[in-house]
Structure formats: structure tokens, C-alpha cells
Design a protein around this nucleic acid. Structure first.
Length: 723
DNA sequence: GTAGGGTTAG
């Protein structure tokens, strides 16, 4: 890994450099499967062709089908044979090769209903929903009436496109034609309404169905989960049992999603036992992966790992589930280790794997690993994938390197709104509001209409940089110019922007004037602004709202207690603390990460567990002494305990970010940039100390806290002390 | 000769 972090690459990144990097993550080799020559050279009769085509269709053997196709052309079997041409078109449609299916479809003069259906099905099942609907209309205009085979695909297309009005009209046609009582058509209606988010309509259809099969129940179960009602899923399952039906794999998949949403581990274990008892997972890799996912969602990583290790039928999704599971359960290091193991075992990662891995990198600010993963991405040809590219933009910026984010963005062949949003968010995170605004204007000039996500990013960027006028102007332009209704997230940004800049009353007025009910997040933004500007009265009012809406969020209690402490109202501090204790809440401990030679070190407050602890504390003592000579005086207002000043000062020198800085100073050459990530906000005194150290030791320090980046250089910080 | 429900990321 040494040599990767050359200052040159970080300042002037380029793709060619990445291509030349040694392979750090072992890459896998591939063997290609050769298709056996099974098609005979002597001409086949049309009867033989027909039955062969049928079996190839059933097996979806695309390559062999192509060979048969050319055989039929060269022997003239296909000429004037509508029956075989129809079968061939259906074959290509089944295999998902719609262009080839369409060429043959167009040549057939006498199109029967089967042919129309197979084309509509092909488009609908391969993601070409609009084409599927266009063809359906075309069929009607040719005077061909649809049947019970047509509607399921048309309804699927409507559901996937989310076009509620057209879906309803198709439903009416179904009723008029008398197909509503067909169980397949009925089930497709359930699925369509579930995709629309209209479970009330799905329920109406379900109740009216003269005949229901297992799929009907399964669709209702999975629909309830997808629409955010996992408890309802269990109720439906109960009724299904009373109706005398037995769960199959699809039922269990729905229930496992419900279990994951509710983190109902016991129920999950029971389903697992049922799966094992009935040997269901053997035939269904979806079930295996769902079980892994369920254990991860229940924060039960040991069980997830045990099950994963014991399974022989693992595929890419299994690895992905576990990798993202570790990352969600704050063990990103394990997530990265697992990725390396996956590659070394010859399992090919896909774009989902890479997005998860990059997510793990940004959680622990693993810049070196990100560069290594980027190199892998280029070599494996994932560079052009918009999702992977967007993740890279976000990860580089969260790892402190905006130049690399910009390079990735510039080289992306297809920039989505999410890519733009990630870029703006990155600049915002680093306090570069002006640059973010300039990119935002580039977007507009290029004719790209921003969406909700882009507005959230740009408003956040304005907020971090204190650009009050610009932020307000953008907020008001949302509806007026771009027809985007400001949502709760945008209000939250604006309250933060106003509040942080000290316009507390204006922020409060904005909340009061909101048409919808403000969320806990919005009140939290006002609360933290009140703490910053020491407005106790308004802070108490906001805190009350936050406590009502989000009683388990320990952050807001701490915030209020901090304000009281700053005002030296120790009785009130104790009252809040007692409340926290009564509720059984715990303040998360502060810790800092630093990556050194691909190893991530984690320091807790007052950590004495590191093997270099003596050197670290000696270095801190030396630093403190030299800073005091420099005229430094501790700002103990960040210490929220009613203790002696000297004790307070000592407590400050235990803060995790200082341990990490000392560790970096000991272990890196002079001139190396120090990159640190903290899980909470950096405290006022640590901010001052970091500025001073950057001057005293001639070291640039890039520190990411829970909200933003601070670049300390030559005694000052990029945030201009506005944070 | 065709059909509906099911896993990972964002």
C-alpha cells in the first residue's frame, strides 16, 4: 500500500495512474463456457424445428436458439412459415433479446394473439414498460382483443412505471371484459396496486376475488411489508393459515422482510428453523440470502456469519448481504476484510458489492482503501456504472479528497441527478459553499432541472458556509422556478441555515408558518442553533418538542444540558442528566479514527489500550507544554462537569481527536497530511488546539466530524470558525 | 405454445 498516497495523486488525480497501480486486491480469472455444437448439419423438418425450439425456449438457451435460427434460414424452413416464425419471435422475447424478437415480429403479416402476448410479455418483463404499453394499444387498434394472458403483463408494466391513472383504466377494462375473476389477472392487480402504494385498493380486489391461491396471499403479505406495515403482513399470514394454506418459499421471503423491519429476532429464528426442517433453502438461494439479511437487520452478526459460513450455495448476493450487514452494524473494517476474502475466493463482485464497500470506506474514512477499490473498479470495468461512480464521488469527499471526487464526476459518461447531488454535498461538507453554488449554476445553465435531493445538498452547502441570502433565494426559487415543493428536509436545512447564522427568531417564525407539521429533525436544528447562540428560552421550547417526538434521541438531551452548563446552571444540568438516566439512555462515547498503512486505528476518550500509549501520552504532554508557551489557554466551556478548572483542563487532553493527532505525529513523516474522523462534533477547545498544532508542527490536519470537514493549516481552519 | 408473488445498494 505504500506509495499510493503520493501527494501528487491526491492533488492531481488521474485515471491512468490508477490503471498502473499494482493489484492490491487479488483479481479473479474467468473461464468461458463453450456451447457444444449440438445442432446437426443435415436439414431438419419444420416439425423437428418446432419441437426443438420449444425445448430451447423452456431452457432459455439463447446461443443454441441462434444456431437453430441460422439453420432454419439457410434451409429455407422459416420462409412463409408463420407458425415457426411466431415461435422464434417468442423464443427471443423469452430470452430478453427484444430487438431480435421485434425484427421477426414485424415480418409476420398474420399476427395471432399468442404473438402479441409474447411481445407484450417480453417488453414488460425486460424493463421496457413503455414499449409494452404502446404495443398493447397497437394491438387494440388492429382490432385484436386482449385475453387473460395479456392483462398480467400490461398490469405489471403499469405497476413498475407507477402510472396510477392508466393502471386504473386498465383495471376498468378488465372488469368490462369479465377477466377480473381470473386468478392470474386478479393477482396481477394486487401486485400493481401494491406497487402504487395503494394497499387499500389491493385489499378491495383481494376481498372480491372469487378464487384465491397461494400467490394471492403471498402478494398481500409482501405488499404489506413493502408499504411499511410489517405487522399487517403477520396478520395476513395468520388468516392465510386459517384458510388452510401452507407457506411456501415466497411466503417466507415476505415474512423474513417483515421480521427484518421489526428486528424480531425470535420470529426470524423460528422461520429459519422451519426452513431447515423442510429443507427449503436447498432449492432457493433467495431464501438463503434473505436469512442472512434478516440476521443482519436484527443486529445479530454472529448468527449471520455462522449461517453464511455453513452455507455451500453462496452467490454474489449472499456476500453482498453480509458485507452491507457489517457496514450497517458499524463494523466497516470487517466489511472490507470480507470483500477482500470474496475476491480472493474468486467470487466476482457486482455493482452492489462495490457500492457497499465504498459505503464502508466512507464510514471509517479509509482513503487508502478507497483508492485501491477505485483502481479495482477501473480494472474490472465498473467505471461507467452511474451508481458506482456516484458512490465514489461521495466516498472521496467524505474521505477528505474533493479533487478526486471532481475527477470522477468529470469522467462519468452518464451523470445522474444523484451524481450532481453527491458533488454538491461533497463541497458543502468541506464548507466550500461558493464552489457548490457555482456547480449548481453550471447545472442550471446546462438545462438540468434539479430535484429534491439536489436542493437538499445545495441548501446544506449554503448552511455550512453561512450563505444566508443565497440559501433563502434558492429555497424560495424551488416552487417558483423549478416546481419542486419544499419538503421537510428542505425546511430543516433552512432552519439550520438561519439558526446557525443567528437569525433564531426568523427560524422560529419559519417553523410556525409551515403548512405541514414540523418533524423532530426541524426542532433539533433550532435547538442546536439555540445552544450555539445561547438562547435558553427558545432552546427549552424546542427541546420540549424534540423530546415529545423523539424521546429516545440522546443527542438533544445532551445539547440542552450543554447549554445549561455553558450558562453554569448546574442544577438544570443535573435535572437533564437525571432524565436521561431515568429513560435508560446512554451518551455514545467519543472516538476518532485514523488510517495508517491500510490499518484503521480507533481511539476512545482517554484510551489507554493502544500499544503505543506511553509514547502517545508523552507526545500530548509535550504538545501541551509547547502550546502553553505559545500562549494557549484552555477553553473549558466544552467540559460539562461542575469540577475544578484544572480537572477540566486535564479532561480536555483526553479527547480522542488529540490522541489520534499525537499518534499520527509519532508515526508519520513530517509534511504528511493527518486525516482524522470523529464520530461526534469536534469540541471548541480541540478545534483551537488543532489550529495551533497545524502551525506549530507545520502539519495540515484534515478532520471530519459528524457534520462536516475542518482543514487545519498554518494556524487557521477552513471553516473560518463558523460551524 | 403464453401467466401472477420472492434476495443485495441507492
Amino acid at each position: 500500500m505504500n506509495g499510493i498516497l503520493t501527494p501528487n495523486f491526491l492533488k492531481y488525480p488521474n485515471t491512468n495512474y490508477l490503471k498502473k497501480l499494482p493489484i492490491l486486491i487479488p483479481t479473479c480469472t474467468y473461464t468461458t463456457t463453450q456451447f457444444a455444437e449440438t445442432v446437426p448439419t443435415s436439414p431438419l423438418t419444420s416439425l423437428q424445428c418446432g419441437s426443438m425450439l420449444q425445448s430451447l425456449t423452456n431452457a432459455k438457451s439463447y446461443k443454441l436458439g441462434q444456431q437453430l435460427h441460422s439453420h432454419m434460414i439457410s434451409c429455407g424452413t422459416l420462409r412463409n412459415n408463420t407458425y415457426l416464425s411466431t415461435k422464434l419471435s417468442a423464443f427471443y422475447a423469452i430470452c430478453g433479446h427484444m430487438d431480435q424478437a421485434k425484427v421477426i415480429f414485424d415480418q409476420i403479416v398474420l399476427k395471432n394473439l399468442f404473438l402479441w402476448n409474447s411481445m407484450i410479455r417480453g417488453y414488460s418483463c425486460n424493463g421496457f414498460h413503455v414499449k409494452s404499453l404502446v404495443l398493447y394499444r397497437e394491438m387494440m387498434s388492429f382490432g385484436q382483443k386482449p385475453d387473460n394472458f395479456t392483462y398480467p403483463f400490461v398490469q405489471k408494466a403499469c405497476g413498475d412505471l407507477g402510472i396510477v391513472e392508466i393502471g386504473r383504466r386498465v383495471h376498468c377494462e378488465v372488469v368490462v371484459c369479465g377477466f377480473e375473476s381470473d386468478v392470474y389477472v386478479g393477482n396481477s392487480l394486487l401486485a400493481m396496486y401494491s406497487k402504487f402504494g395503494k394497499m387499500d385498493m389491493a385489499k378491495k380486489v383481494f376481498d372480491r376475488m372469487p378464487e384465491r391461491d397461494l400467490t394471492s396471499w403471498n402478494t398481500m403479505i409482501s405488499g404489506s411489508v413493502k408499504n411499511g406495515d410489517p405487522r399487517e403482513a403477520f396478520l395476513v399470514f395468520g388468516m392465510m393459515g386459517k384458510a388452510g394454506l401452507v407457506a411456501d418459499s415466497a411466503t417466507l421471503l415476505g415474512l423474513l422482510s417483515a421480521v427484518a423491519d421489526l428486528a424480531a429476532l425470535e420470529m426470524g429464528r423460528a422461520i429459519h428453523a422451519y426452513v431447515v426442517h423442510n429443507n427449503l433453502a436447498r432449492f432457493n438461494s433467495f431464501l438463503i440470502n434473505s436469512l442472512i439479511e434478516m440476521y443482519c437487520s436484527c443486529n445479530s452478526m454472529v448468527a449471520a456469519r455462522r449461517f453464511f459460513e455453513g452455507e455451500t450455495k453462496k452467490d454474489t448476493v449472499s456476500w453482498n448481504s453480509l458485507i452491507s450487514g457489517y457496514s450497517k452494524n458499524t463494523d466497516s473494517l470487517e466489511s472490507l476484510r470480507l470483500f477482500c476474502q470474496m475476491v480472493s475466493e474468486g467470487v466476482r463482485p457486482d455493482q452492489v458489492t462495490l457500492v457497499s464497500v465504498l459505503g464502508a470506506c466512507d464510514q471509517i474514512t479509509a482513503l487508502q482503501f478507497t483508492i485501491s477499490a477505485h483502481s479495482y473498479i477501473i480494472k474490472q470495468g465498473f467505471e461507467a456504472n452511474p451508481m458506482v461512480g456516484t458512490s465514489l464521488i461521495g466516498t472521496y469527499s467524505k474521505c477528505g479528497n474533493l479533487v478526486c471526487s471532481l475527477m470522477v464526476f468529470n469522467e462519468m459518461p452518464e451523470k445522474t441527478l444523484v451524481s450532481w447531488s453527491a458533488l454538491l454535498a461533497g463541497y458543502g461538507l468541506h464548507g466550500k459553499g461558493r464552489e457548490a453554488l457555482s456547480f449548481f449554476h453550471d447545472m442550471i445553465v446546462n438545462g438540468i432541472t434539479p430535484d429534491e435531493g439536489v436542493f437538499t445538498s445545495i441548501l446544506t452547502a449554503c448552511s455550512h458556509a453561512g450563505l444566508v441570502g443565497e440559501g433563502k433565494e434558492i429555497f424560495h426559487s424551488m416552487k417558483r422556478t423549478y416546481n419542486v415543493q419544499p419538503g421537510l428536509a428542505h425546511y430543516s436545512c433552512l432552519v439550520d441555515l438561519l439558526g446557525r447564522a443567528g437569525h433564531l427568531d426568523e427560524a422560529y417564525e419559519l417553523i410556525k408558518a409551515m403548512e405541514v407539521k414540523p418533524t423532530g429533525d426541524i426542532w433539533t436544528a433550532l435547538l442546536s442553533a439555540c445552544r450555539l447562540h445561547r438562547n435558553v428560552e427558545l432552546a427549552e421550547l424546542s427541546a420540549q418538542r424534540v423530546f415529545e417526538m423523539n424521546p429516545r434521541g440522546v443527542g438533544s438531551y445532551i445539547c440542552l444540558s450543554n447549554l445549561y452548563a455553558a450558562e453554569k446552571r448546574w442544577d438544570d444540568v443535573e435535572k437533564v442528566r437525571a432524565l436521561v438516566r431515568r429513560k435508560g439512555l446512554k451518551k455514545p462515547p467519543g472516538f476518532s479514527f485514523i488510517e495508517l498503512d491500510k490499518v484503521v486505528h480507533r481511539f476512545l476518550v482517554g484510551d489507554k489500550s493502544h500499544k503505543q500509549k506511553e509514547d502517545i501520552y508523552a507526545k500530548l504532554k509535550e504538545l501541551r507544554h509547547r502550546l502553553e508557551e505559545f500562549g494557549y489557554k484552555s477553553d473549558t466551556s466544552s467540559v460539562l462537569y461542575d469540577v475544578e478548572e484544572e480537572v477540566k483542563e486535564n479532561m480536555l487532553w483526553d479527547h480522542s481527536e488529540r490522541l489520534a493527532i499525537a499518534f499520527a505525529l509519532i508515526n508519520t513523516r513530517s509534511g504528511t497530511i493527518i486525516r482524522i474522523t470523529k464520530n461526534l462534533r469536534v469540541c471548541g477547545d480541540c478545534h483551537t488546539v488543532s489550529k495551533l498544532i497545524s502551525r506549530l508542527m507545520c502539519r495540515e490536519i484534515i478532520m471530519r466530524d459528524i457534520r462536516r470537514f475542518h482543514h487545519f493549516k498554518d494556524g487557521s481552519c477552513s471553516c473560518g470558525d463558523y460551524w
